[in-house]
Amino acid sequence: MRRYRISTELSEMDIDVIHAFISKSYWAKDIPKPVLQKALAHSLCFGVFTSGNQQVGFGRLITDRATYAYLADVFIVDEYRGLGLSKALMTNIVSHPDLQGLRRMVLSTRDAHGLYEQFGFTQVPNPEALMQVWKPNVYQE
């Protein structure tokens, strides 16, 4: 990771890069930029940057920083995949001082189980205990 760095400074996050990726994702397609900006403002954000300060990755935690965290919006832009950046990002996330001692950290993923399992995430053993209000097309309405 010599050529890359990870920052949690919200002021460094490039909302245009983040929005360009997330607004085309399967989990937040068409999310309006103002909604995304509000989400970032109320989250613990992690950005992956090149030595030239170009943002090439992102992830955020929705958390009280004491008992619970939900990991969301994790990505590495296509051109920078395969360089170990997702593992470096996850290492930074799970070792962040504000996320130590949590009772639960959760996420939802369709296709990256192998990555997250390397960092201790497992399938929920009792999914019947989970409930949700789910509006998958909220940004298209």
Rank of each mutant, 00 (worst) to 15 (best):
L102Y: 05
Y116W: 06
M90I: 08
R104T: 11
S95I: 09
M105Q: 08
A129T: 13
H113L: 01
A129V: 09
A88E: 10
D111Q: 06
K87M: 01
D98A: 14
K87Q: 07
S108C: 06
G114E: 05
E117I: 02
S108I: 12
N92L: 04
T109L: 05
Q123F: 09
L115F: 00
R103K: 15
E128Y: 13
T109H: 12
L115K: 01
V94P: 03
T91R: 10
Q123Y: 08
E128H: 08
A88L: 11
S95M: 11
A88D: 04
G101Q: 08
G120A: 15
G120L: 13
P125H: 07
Q123C: 09
D111A: 02
K87L: 05
F121C: 05
P127M: 14
G114H: 06
G101F: 06
R104F: 11
V94F: 03
G101R: 07
T122W: 03
L107G: 07
P125T: 13
F119V: 06
V106K: 09
A112Q: 04
D98K: 14
T91Y: 07
G101W: 10
G120W: 10
H96E: 08
V94L: 11
V106P: 02
P97F: 00
N92C: 15
E128D: 15
H96D: 12
S108M: 11
R104V: 14
A88Q: 08
V124Q: 12
S108K: 01
L107I: 08
E128G: 12
R110K: 03
Q118H: 07
S108P: 00
Q100V: 07
H113M: 05
L102K: 04
H96R: 09
P127A: 15
V94H: 03
L130I: 07
G101V: 08
L89M: 13
Q123A: 11
T109S: 10
Q100R: 07
T91C: 03
N126K: 15
F119T: 03
L102W: 06
Y116N: 02
G120N: 06
H113P: 00
E117P: 07
H96Q: 10
Q123W: 02
M90F: 05
H113K: 07
D111L: 09
F121G: 00
N126D: 15
T91A: 10
L107F: 05
I93C: 03
S108N: 05
D98S: 14
H96P: 10
A129D: 10
G101H: 05
F119H: 09
K87D: 08
